[in-house]
Design a protein around this nucleic acid. Structure first.
Length: 494
RNA sequence: GGUGCCGUGCCCAAGUGGCCCAAGGGGACGGUCUGCAAAACCGUUAUUCGGCGGUUCGAAUCCGCCCGGCACCUCCA
């Protein structure tokens, strides 16, 4: 096991500190997954990618990781007030929207988007979590937790549900930096529920016999509050105290604040020793929103011709702790870098059959890998880690085809290690990127034109050859001549 | 009103007290290669870090004020 120290920013203590495991060499880690009422967008995936990189770094250090990443398949409220009145929730709204028409019920809708999410997950080459529990599979424990919270004096029943009494938990606010006083003042124009003791009190259970998903409880028909599912599932799979808990920055408040209040009230122990939050992703300088038409999904970008690993690379260009501006140009840049890394690997593999000789890269490659791992251990500095990877690729390319077999082996070893750590060169999932063939000429048609140009070149009819090259360019085809022949790629149009 | 984050070259983006006259990528420019291009490869491209003061032997990094941007405050990764 490596003795490198893995340091990460901790939202709770507001400083970078070593990630410590209660059991030596075994990380117990919980990540908040998506609500499956629509396609998971690349902003969501940025936060899952952060978790993936924590896991990869931990594994590179020789740790064992138990990673739980939940799926929220219960429709939670779009607005507090609506739920009581009309039972409208995110899932129900999705079902009644245009995209929802093809589903017979919310269960089918949740199932569909769960599958889509898992597919996109694999395309991005994210490590498979140890377990992906679904909220709906743990409703019984959520009801038991509600009962226990009432018994312990942290929650109370009203005509509309079971509510957590924020006042009973003095630490409420410790994660987000809010004080209860400020929270009280700051509550926006939310419709007040007079049954609640405090406006800041939050639902553990909602009574609602009209809801599309409902379960029977000691409080009658209804459904669990959003925050209780994570408290319950984290405890079920990882124990009372987690080593690390992660999510998007918007989870800090209220979600994680409420999880802490519930879990610590239930167990009397710290809920998590380390809190990790990924900043939001902006798209071309703007907040990503369906209404703005910049709601990017993995599958959507792949349809435009982007390789999923280029999406991954683009998401890793900046560090997780700062907002990242995801741009079209950034994606194009990433496509280029991806090609460069792959070319270096192909080159190294081909050169493995070369004559034996001095290993001119071994030393440098191991230093570069070590520096990349150091960067990851330094609060997941993906920018620097990526820079080290590209520097290595550059050195390999410089050695060229004639490198010795030993050099080639060192080069391949480096790229393989980098790929394991960063997941950016070749997908481990075995899923072939299903990059859709864009509209336009077929491969065969293009091949025919390329052949015609090659023939013209051979007979030194350069005017005709250039004419064909222009035609192909107009079709969005880029030609690449080399001594070994001509290849072509489709240029990506945004 | 409360809480937190950010402003680094034409663009994206690391670095948060001396290793920085600031990594890496893109772009641009020059070169090698090529029938010419493209691709590839090689090289060049910030005495400077939003502005103004201050602390310090030393600041992009700390403090103050100002300007600009963003997020959260019970829907959101």
């Amino acid at each position: 096991m490596s003795h490198k120290e893995f340091r990460l920013y901790d939202t709770l203590s507001k400083r970078v500190k070593p990630l410590e495991t209660q059991e030596p060499g075994h990380l117990r880690f919980y990540s908040c997954g998506p609500t499956v009422y629509s396609y998971t967008h690349i902003g969501n995936f940025r936060s899952f990618l952060t978790s993936d990189l924590v896991v990869r770094t931990a594994m590179a250090l020789g740790w064992r990781v138990t990673w739980v990443c939940n799926i929220t398949d219960v429709g939670h409220l779009t607005q507090d007030s609506f739920a009581d009145a009309a039972g409208e929730d995110k899932m129900a709204r999705a079902l009644h929207s245009k995209e929802g028409e093809r589903f017979h019920n919310v269960w089918e809708l949740a199932e569909y988007y769960t599958e889509a999410y898992k597919q996109d997950w694999r395309q991005l080459n994210l490590v498979e979590p140890t377990i992906r529990p679904k909220a709906t599979q743990h409703v019984r424990e959520q009801i038991l937790a509600a009962e226990d919270l009432i018994a312990k004096g942290f929650a109370y029943e009203t005509p509309t549900g079971v509510y957590y009494s924020v006042e009973a938990f003095p630490d409420y606010g410790k994660l987000s930096g809010n004080t209860q006083e400020n929270l009280r003042k700051g509550v926006r124009d939310v419709v007040q529920d007079d049954n609640k003791r405090e406006s800041a009190d939050f639902a553990v259970w909602k009574k609602d016999d009209k809801h599309l998903m409902q379960w029977f409880s000691p409080y009658g028909w209804g459904f669990p509050g959003w925050h209780i599912e994570c408290s319950v599932m984290a405890r079920a799979y990882l124990g009372d105290t987690l080593d690390l808990h992660s999510g998007g920055e918007d989870n800090i408040f209220p979600h994680h604040e409420c999880e802490i209040a519930q879990s610590e009230a239930l167990t009397g122990k710290p809920f998590s020793n380390h809190w990790l939050h990924t900043r939001f992703l902006q798209v071309n300088g703007e907040k990503m929103a369906k209404s703005a038409g910049n709601f990017y999904t993995v599958r959507g970008l792949m349809e435009k011709g982007f390789d999923p690993l280029a999406i991954r690379l683009a998401l890793m260009g900046g560090v997780y702790g700062k907002p990242l501006n995801f741009t079209d140009q950034g994606l194009i840049d990433a496509m280029g870098n991806l090609e460069r890394l792959r070319r270096a690997w192909t080159l190294a593999e081909a050169a493995a059959a070369n004559a034996s000789g001095e290993d001119t890269l071994g030393q440098t490659m191991s230093v570069l890998y070590s520096e990349a791992l150091d960067a990851m251990c330094d609060n997941l500095n993906t920018s620097v880690a990526l820079a080290k990877a590209l520097e290595g690729a550059k050195l390999i390319a410089r050695e060229g085809e004639s490198m010795s077999a030993e050099t080639a082996r060192s080069a391949a070893e480096f790229l393989s290690q980098i790929n394991e750590l960063l997941g950016i060169i070749r997908s481990e999932s075995g899923v072939a990127p299903t990059v859709a063939a864009p509209s336009g000429p077929s491969d065969a048609e293009i091949d025919a034109l390329v052949e015609a140009r090659n023939a013209a070149k051979k007979s030194k009819n350069f005017a005709a050859a250039d004419q064909l090259r222009n035609e192909l360019d107009a079709l969005g085809i880029e030609l690449r001549d080399s001594p070994a022949g001509t290849t072509w790629v489709r240029k990506i149009s945004l």
